[in-house]
């Protein structure tokens, strides 16, 4: 949660995350390099660097892209999401080394500016098999550069979460460009079908998980058509919500998390102010709504982060009639106190 600028807010979880990430990368690189030196001893150091960094980057990219949907399938994967941006920046650094070495190796010391040469050397756009694949890789690298450069919470806060999120959704464009880069580059040279199986297999897994979890999400977020009375909309029964948990409802364009705690109900925006995480999938911990993504916290009755933090959520009026929970979908300004609704006969 943001109060002032700090380069990285380290904690044990982040350190443990980076340790496992480093171990993974070291092992992948070690196997790659040792296998190359053993099976293909005549490889040059430049080719080794180009291939090792490319393989590491694309492997990390696949892992990054499956973490999101895995977390939607089972919340026990959430620790993988917690420090995913370090994974992203690391992946970018490998892609950057790959890109720089390719430009140095293939485009410098010639009769044309090296960057211009990336775009001008091969101009055969007519045939798919001869398509200038390096341009696709270059564009992917530019997108990844923008994402890595803006990955810090400083940019998240200054760009606003919505713009930041939109920018970082470009990872899917980068992934598509990378798939094209590999398919129209290396796979036009390597003859074994195994490489196509790997590339397409990765694509099918990522696209399949994203589509499956996306459809589930769309179904769940479908606007409620429950009955209305006065300005309130009936959203569920009190007993439908587990204690300290929430039910997420969409009424019109409002995405609302209705929390039950201590025998009472409060409703706030479902979107965390940090990265628009799904607060309704969080939990009340120490009296605060706690975001499942990065642990940002808010009081349920006014949507404000506990001091000294200053994030605020939109709040919604609620009431309980009989055993039914009703919500006014017209939001109050962020941080507005709303009296929690209590179940009749509740002691709390």
């Amino acid at each position: 949660m943001g109060v002032s600028y700090q380069a990285i807010l380290w904690n044990k979880s982040k350190k443990r995350y980076d340790l496992w990430m480093s171990l993974f990368i070291i092992l992948v690189l070690a196997v790659f390099v040792l296998a190359q030196m053993t099976l293909h001893p005549s490889i040059t150091i430049e080719t080794l660097i180009i291939r090792a960094t490319a393989f590491t980057a694309i492997t990390l990219l696949h892992i990054i892209l499956i973490i999101g949907p895995l977390c939607r399938l089972d919340s026990r994967f959430l620790p993988l999401l917690y420090n995913r941006r370090h994974l992203g920046v690391t992946m970018f650094l490998f892609a950057l080394v790959h890109g720089l070495f390719c430009i140095i190796q293939f485009h410098t010391l010639g009769d044309t500016n090296p960057i211009a040469s990336v775009f001008l050397s091969n101009q055969n756009y007519q045939e798919i098999s001869e398509f200038p694949f390096q341009i696709l890789g270059f564009l992917a690298l530019v997108i990844l550069l923008l994402m890595a450069a803006t990955s810090h919470d400083f940019w998240l806060k200054n760009l606003t979460p919505r713009i930041w999120k939109g920018l970082h959704m470009a990872v899917y464009i980068a992934y598509a460009l990378v798939v094209g880069h590999v398919a129209l580059g290396t796979l036009q040279y390597e003859s074994k079908p195994l490489y196509w199986v790997m590339l397409l297999g990765g694509f099918v897994v990522i696209a399949g998980l994203q589509i499956f979890t996306g459809l589930r999400e769309v179904k769940r977020l479908r606007s409620t058509s429950e009955k209305t009375k006065d300005k309130f909309v009936k959203v569920c029964n009190f007993d439908d919500i587990e204690d300290s948990r929430a039910k997420i409802v969409t009424i019109g364009s409002e995405n609302i998390a209705v929390f039950r705690y201590d025998g009472q109900i409060s409703a706030v925006s479902n979107l965390c102010r940090h990265q628009l995480g799904p607060l309704g999938e969080g939990k009340i911990v120490d009296g605060c709504i706690t975001c499942p993504w990065h642990g940002y916290q808010y009081f349920p009755h006014n949507g404000q982060s506990p001091p000294p933090f200053n994030e605020k959520l939109k709040t919604y009026e609620v009431n309980i009639r009989g055993n039914d929970v009703w919500v006014d979908p017209k939001p109050k300004p962020p941080g507005t106190f709303i009296q929690p609704a209590k179940l009749e006969g509740s002691a709390s």
Binding site: W20, F24, L27, V31, L39, H40, I43, T47, M198
Partner: peptide
């Protein structure tokens, strides 16, 4: 769950790494 997942991920990724190198065209 994470121990299982990370073990599977490490094993799978290292296996893929070896296969990628093993099947590439030899250099002259």
């Amino acid at each position: 769950l994470l121990i299982l997942f990370i073990t599977a991920l490490f094993t799978f990724s290292l296996g893929i790494t070896y296969l990628v190198v093993k099947n590439q065209k030899p250099f002259n």
